[in-house]
Design a protein around this nucleic acid. Sequence first.
DNA 1: CTCGCATCTTTACAGTGTCAACATATATCT
DNA 2: AGATATATGTTGACACTGTAAAGATGCGAG
Lengths: 209, 209
Amino acid sequence: MVKETAERDRYHHGDLRAALLAAAETELSEKGVEGFTLRGCAKRAGVSHAAPAHHFGDADGLLTALAAEGFQRFTWAMRTRQAMAPKGGWTPLEAAGLGYLDFSAANPAMFRLMFSSARPRFDDPSLSPAAEEAFGVLVEAVTDARGANPWADAQGPADVAAAWALAHGMADLLMSGRLKFLNVEAGPQRDKVLAGVLARLLLEAPSAS
Amino acid sequence: MVKETAERDRYHHGDLRAALLAAAETELSEKGVEGFTLRGCAKRAGVSHAAPAHHFGDADGLLTALAAEGFQRFTWAMRTRQAMAPKGGWTPLEAAGLGYLDFSAANPAMFRLMFSSARPRFDDPSLSPAAEEAFGVLVEAVTDARGANPWADAQGPADVAAAWALAHGMADLLMSGRLKFLNVEAGPQRDKVLAGVLARLLLEAPSAS
DNA sequence: CTCGCATCTTTACAGTGTCAACATATATCT
DNA sequence: AGATATATGTTGACACTGTAAAGATGCGAG
């Protein structure tokens, strides 16, 4: 029992960085991106309002680190769906799309932070690899679906864009409550309905020009 | 010459509501949704910081009115593309999609306000009809594309959702610079490339079950 | 054991949205 | 036309925000 006082009444927190990230996540999900407050995070973590600056610089720095964590979980959500694929019978691309929708539905504020905010610094060395890895999942799935490297032929990039746009658009519109006419709230047939929309995607086979 | 002093040095502005809306639009496009400031709008309009309250209540009220105007122009952008359709050779649905992309590219901050912000009050009697009219353009175009009322058969709603999601996803991703691999910056062949992505949409004909 | 440095707090300041009180001009009513 | 109600703007104040500077504290390297 070396460290005992846990995180109580110590001038030095021990792992304030992680505590602040956790606090920031609940602050984000409760208040949304536009209601997010640095002082609120500090209060949740039980430290003074200026403490976060030593770990993240400014508020956008904290949001950048938070978004990086978000992209990691986002990648995980898609890969998890793909791993469960044989059970559901989905193709890797359909599974990635469903994972995309899972994540946005479960973490709407985080999704907004990652895709609809200018506050995170997307060129940050901790963020951009995480975002690119998520993009990699998508490209990989599109490659599987069309049976060829999308960067090798002319219509490949359009296939990637279409697959991404369809999934992303559904996620964004679903999250903001704009697809209520789909009646896809309850659980069991949710996947079927959503995959049915994703199935409207037509990928062209690479033709020998 | 009854009214002469124009809008200079008068205690009462004359048409401050319109002036504030115009100021808010430039404030929005320069600072973005997250940098938008009520006091900045007042300063641009040349009035005191508390003046907007008499016309819009609070800051969200101003953003609500601004978003309503945005949806009207959004509808106009899609209809304009459809009116030019014979020239371009696009179907009404493709034209609506291109109009969707036109608008988001020309007014990125406004697009964010309309689709990715929680600040406008979307149930406001001035906003919701404007948003529904834009939705109507889409439904109308989908009806044309599939040759049947989408609310009349089972797969219709999924067609509407897919068409909307594809266009919306493209608009959002393009606007945030995430589709750079499409190389669609220059003008002339922009429409062809974008319509090529939109063409990945497959609408099912209503089958007689 | 001592000292350098990372970590955290305190204090201060400019900027923000909103409210209440006040000032001014327009519109309405007799 | 003149008085009065009402709409429209201003001023001042308040709580809250992000950030910076300076001081307090304790860990760890020498």
